[in-house]
């Protein structure tokens, strides 16, 4: 069964580049890498899948249903730099946030919620830091908290935006192990990534993206010199220029 189907997805997103006519399917239980150069629309793709960015056109379905029906089955790890780490909450509170979707208004966190939070902290080896203010932690530790927060969501599909950016080796190793465990449980992970060297070891499915979809499929089929060149090479310059022109035109600047 396909966990995710994307058809003719087009996103017009101010400031970042555009996504044009993206089509792909993802089968269950894969660790999927989303690769592409800066500004290729990797994060935009995730945001469109999550409904944070409104696509201009196209359909997205998880488990054959629209997003609004299956929201609780989808976990999200945003980029670490997207939040203010001086915010007055502890590591424990941050992870607990993953439960808020299932928690009703005015309901205190139940014993179950606390236990789940503690377990997730344990899984990412952050239990000793539960009471620390989040700004006092290192980049790797902060990333672990974000992962733990997604874990307590108890989702079936996880979308992760650059989880390996700016973290230490030990954290990277922990995360890779954790992702593997999740996959064995039948979960699907979509991971935005930009390090080509580790691609073959980390993923079993790839989406190569540069505004257009370059290729999507099993790593062994897709990860070759020609596709990489098409993704990262200079061939897309014309496309970028056209995108900027289109953007200016439609917003009335030109």
């Amino acid at each position: 069964m396909n966990i995710l189907e994307v058809e003719q997805l087009t996103v017009n997103y101010e400031k970042t580049s555009v996504l044009w006519d993206i089509n792909f399917v993802i089968p269950e239980g894969k660790i999927v890498g989303i690769l592409g150069p800066n500004g290729a629309g990797k994060s935009t793709l995730l945001k469109a899948l999550l409904g944070l960015v409104k696509p201009l056109n196209g359909t997205i379905s998880f488990f054959g249903k629209p997003l609004s029906k299956v929201r609780k089955k989808i976990g999200y790890v945003p980029q670490r730099s997207s939040v203010d780490w001086d915010f007055p909450i502890t590591a424990f509170d941050l992870v607990m946030m993953g439960r808020y979707g299932k928690l009703g208004l005015l309901k205190w966190a139940s014993k179950e919620d606390r236990e789940a939070t503690r377990q997730a902290l344990c899984q990412v080896e952050m239990l000793p830091f539960a009471d620390r203010q989040i700004g006092q932690l290192s980049g790797g530790q902060q990333q672990r908290l974000f992962i733990a927060r997604a874990l307590v969501q108890d989702a079936d599909v996880y979308l992760l935006d650059e989880p390996f950016a700016g973290i230490d080796m030990a954290t990277e190793k922990t995360l890779v192990g954790l992702f593997e465990t999740l996959r064995k449980k039948g979960k699907t992970l979509l991971i935005v990534h930009h390090n080509l060297a580790s691609t073959e070891n980390y993923f079993d499915w790839l989406i190569l993206l540069n505004t257009c979809l370059i290729a999507a499929g099993p790593v062994s089929d897709v990860f070759n010199q020609q596709n990489i060149w098409r993704t990262y090479g200079r061939s897309s310059i014309l496309l970028d220029e056209a995108a900027i022109k289109a953007k200016n035109k439609t917003s009335g600047l030109l």
Binding site: K47, L52, Y76, P78, V83, F87, I89, Y100, G101, R149
Partner: peptide, 13 residues
């Protein structure tokens, strides 16, 4: 708490 710390994550919840 959720919205002021991380608005897009809260939206996905």
């Amino acid at each position: 708490e959720a919205v002021n710390f991380d608005p897009s994550f809260s939206e996905t919840l």
